[in-house]
Design a protein around this nucleic acid. Structure first.
Lengths: 116, 116
DNA sequence: CTCCATACTATCATTTTAGATAGTACCTAT
DNA sequence: ATAGGTACTATCTAAAATGATAGTATGGAG
């Protein structure tokens, strides 16, 4: 049996706890899907929106700005008309992709487990 | 550069998408912390609550039941007085721990990245 | 009889998150 | 002059999540 050793079990300083940080960032309803769409490359706002039609423009904008604030996402504005804005992952954002991949694998296992 | 291949990018069937499933389950505000407290072993309700004093009893109960519903958590009731209820991870719940570990590592990297 | 411990449940209030809808700015093409 | 395309912003509303608080059940100890 594996004994798990964590950085901050029983630690009160949640600001500093890496797991609490991760939860705060990836807890949002759309984050994981946003990340995985962006994992395939740069996308414009409209493209993203079309890939996730259940999100409203307003919500998508807010979520993108939030993740930009956390520096997981880069936002590049082209001063053109009609406007063009491209979104992509930052370096630290990309480092979440392996975790996302594992989550996907787990999700798949979970599905099988539940179905029997 | 790694090309990421996912099960359901551009797939509309979100019910079936492992990432959408994962997001739904671990999206809750307390999930990750709950899991990692339980990763160290069986805990009683009160013990858990003492480890996470910012959660109210009501919320903790609801969250535990939700995760029990998803079968990540086992709930064992002892017919004693005063009551005793023990919580632990199920098999499929434990399979999330490696992912949690990676998230922790990422969180740590993130902290460093942000600080400079 | 009263109090204690434990793990709740029930209500109501508040906060957070997301959705619906409409409007804006700007240059280009017709 | 007008319409079109894009990425917004601004309000308002609705829904979901969480918090605060009080109450319940039970049997044993004193």
């Amino acid at each position: 049996m594996i004994v798990w050793r964590w950085k901050c079990i029983n630690n009160i300083d949640l600001e500093d706890c890496p797991i609490a940080i991760a939860q705060k960032i990836i807890g949002g309803k759309w984050v994981l899907r946003l990340l995985y769409h962006l994992s395939t490359g740069i996308l414009r706002f409209g493209e993203l929106n079309r890939k996730m039609p259940e999100v409203t423009q307003a919500t998508l904008t807010k979520e993108l700005r939030r993740l930009e604030g956390f520096q997981l996402i880069k936002r590049k504005v082209y001063p053109e008309v009609p406007p063009r804005v491209e979104y992509s992952l930052t370096e630290i954002g990309m480092k979440l992709l392996p975790v996302l991949k594992e989550l996907e694998i787990w999700g798949d296992e979970y599905k099988k487990y539940i179905k029997q």
